[in-house]
Design a protein around this nucleic acid. Structure first.
Length: 305
DNA sequence: ATGGTGGTATCACCA
């Protein structure tokens, strides 16, 4: 299917029934989606699939806000990063009681990824292949409705010039190798997560302020481009080709209040996933709440296969 | 010039 027709792009607002991703107004998006859900009374597998990525910066600290957000039915699959919990301490029951299937890949204290799904997850794989000595919990994959999805917490890499930056770049090479394998399946693949990379100057309020940061190093950005150029599509840029679409605001210096953000949380779509693209958006609401994570969710919607 | 986590300080580490 076409990603976005010219007619949609030139449509100045009048909502048409069951249109694609043309109108970007929030009210129109909600109305359109509600219409799809209520009128498309087919089996669940025939409905659009919404995938969210959300670095929650500690699942226990964020639990009440996360539960409220989930209660609004924001997505069918939620990829979490920085759960900062071992698997046994993950508040699994809090989600399962609300109807979510839970898969986790945690470690003590730091890092950790998880997936919450409305439907059972198939073929869960934990850990990024390519280095058996790497014990950091930053990667998992699962299949949902024929789509292979990864929840990614790419290393931060600061400070530059240390083994931490070397680890980041080596991890990105391993991710790229895994991504090649996934592309070779020629199935829909979505790489979702906190990539800890600011892809371009327009992805930071003040790029100069990030000049010495691992998230904005030429090597980091080049490695991200090399990954994307394997054949992936940066989902949010299908809806908004240019300009700020921040997903992270530092806790310090009133960054949120002044919208001094960066865009580091991404959904990368394989060609087969991009063919199903319907919509992508940043949900800024969670970042404005009390006890918020420093990240906010990004949600991509794919049509049924 | 903030916040989460963990271990057990007058804090270290990660982001």
């Amino acid at each position: 299917m076409a990603i976005k027709s010219m007619a949609d792009q030139q449509n100045d607002g009048a909502p048409e029934p069951l249109k694609g991703a043309g109108d970007t107004g929030e009210a129109h998006q909600k109305e359109r989606f509600t219409r799809r859900l209520t009128q498309d009374a087919g089996p669940r597998s025939m409905r659009p699939m919404r995938i969210a990525t959300f670095n929650i910066n500690g699942v226990k600290a964020r639990l009440p806000r996360l539960q409220e957000w989930l209660a609004d039915d924001p997505a069918d699959l939620v990829c979490l990063q920085e759960i900062k919990s071992v698997d046994d301490n993950f508040p699994r029951a809090a989600f399962e009681d609300a109807g979510w299937h839970v898969a986790t890949h945690g470690q003590k204290g730091f890092n950790g990824v998880a997936m919450l799904s409305r439907r059972p997850l198939d073929d869960v794989m934990t850990g990024l292949p390519g280095d058996d000595t790497d014990t950091q919990a930053r990667y998992m994959e699962a299949t949902l409705g024929g789509v292979r999805v990864a929840s990614i917490y790419l290393p931060n890499g600061n400070p530059v010039g240390t083994e931490k930056f070397d680890y980041k770049l080596a991890w990105m090479r391993r991710l790229t190798a895994r991504a090649k394998e996934l592309l070779a399946t020629e199935r829909p693949v979505v790489l979702s997560g906190d990539f800890n990379v600011i892809p371009a100057p327009e992805d930071a309020h003040d790029p100069a302020a990030w000049a010495d940061d691992a998230l904005y190093q030429p090597e980091s950005r080049a490695a991200f481009r090399a990954l994307v150029h394997l054949g992936f599509t940066d989902a949010i840029r299908l809806v908004q080709p240019h300009g700020p679409a921040y997903t992270f605001w530092d806790y310090q210096r009133g960054a949120w209040q002044q919208d001094h953000g960066i865009r580091i949380d991404h959904h990368l779509l394989s060609p087969q996933a991009a063919d199903r693209f319907v919509d992508a958006r940043v949900d800024r609401a969670p970042r404005g709440q009390e006890k918020a994570s420093d990240h906010t969710p990004v949600i991509v919607t794919l049509a049924d296969g």
